[in-house]
Amino acid sequence: MTEQPRALHKIAFDLSEDAAAWARAAVEKLWVEKTDVRMEVRVRNVPFYAKGVAFGDVVRVRIDHERRQIVYEEFVSESGHSAVRLIIMDDDANSRVVDVLRAHDCWWEVDISGRLWAVDVPPPVDYAMMRSSLLRLADEGAIGFEEAALAAGHRQAAGLS
């Protein structure tokens, strides 16, 4: 018997003041799917601005009746995926970044400006090697690089634990 895909819903993640300035919004809405636990959901996309959460992570939500939104309340468990953000500073860097991400079997979304990239780093990725490649590009001034949510396995592999 095949498992039915679960319906996706959007929930609001309140952004820090700094992230809200970048986003030009107070919240970022992420796609989630329900889990079998009441008020716990699994994140189904990579955030552009919210920190501390990655694709597949489970979070607890609450209903905010005043705002008429379902809102992130707290982190529950990690999926093993990490989320990194890249800002393309040099247009010539696009193909080099794509080469790095493809070499590590990552997938990504690009915002409407084409400059901000939200990258999903799956659990089996050799994060130390990928991070080294991205930091080289950052040192050259080609990209800005931010680790928005690092899974324990990636932190350990990169010697960040």
Rank of each mutant, 00 (worst) to 15 (best):
W117D: 01
D57W: 00
V43T: 06
H65P: 08
G144K: 07
A20M: 04
L150F: 08
R38P: 07
I70W: 10
E40V: 15
V41P: 06
R6D: 01
E140D: 13
W31K: 11
V37L: 12
E78M: 07
F75H: 10
R102T: 07
P123V: 05
Q156S: 15
D57L: 02
Y72S: 02
Q69G: 05
V71W: 06
V71R: 11
G144L: 09
D36F: 14
G114L: 02
L134R: 05
L101E: 03
I88W: 05
S16T: 12
A54W: 01
L8R: 13
I87Y: 13
W22I: 13
L150Y: 10
G144E: 05
T2D: 04
L8V: 13
V59K: 05
A7L: 14
V100Y: 11
D91N: 14
A25L: 01
I88D: 05
S77W: 05
M39P: 02
D14C: 08
M129D: 15
E146D: 14
M89T: 11
D14S: 09
V58Q: 03
R155G: 08
S79R: 13
N94D: 12
A151W: 08
M129I: 10
A151Y: 12
R38D: 09
Y127T: 11
E28A: 02
A26Q: 08
V32Q: 13
N45T: 04
V53L: 02
S161C: 07
Y49G: 02
N45R: 03
A158Q: 06
F55C: 01
R24F: 04
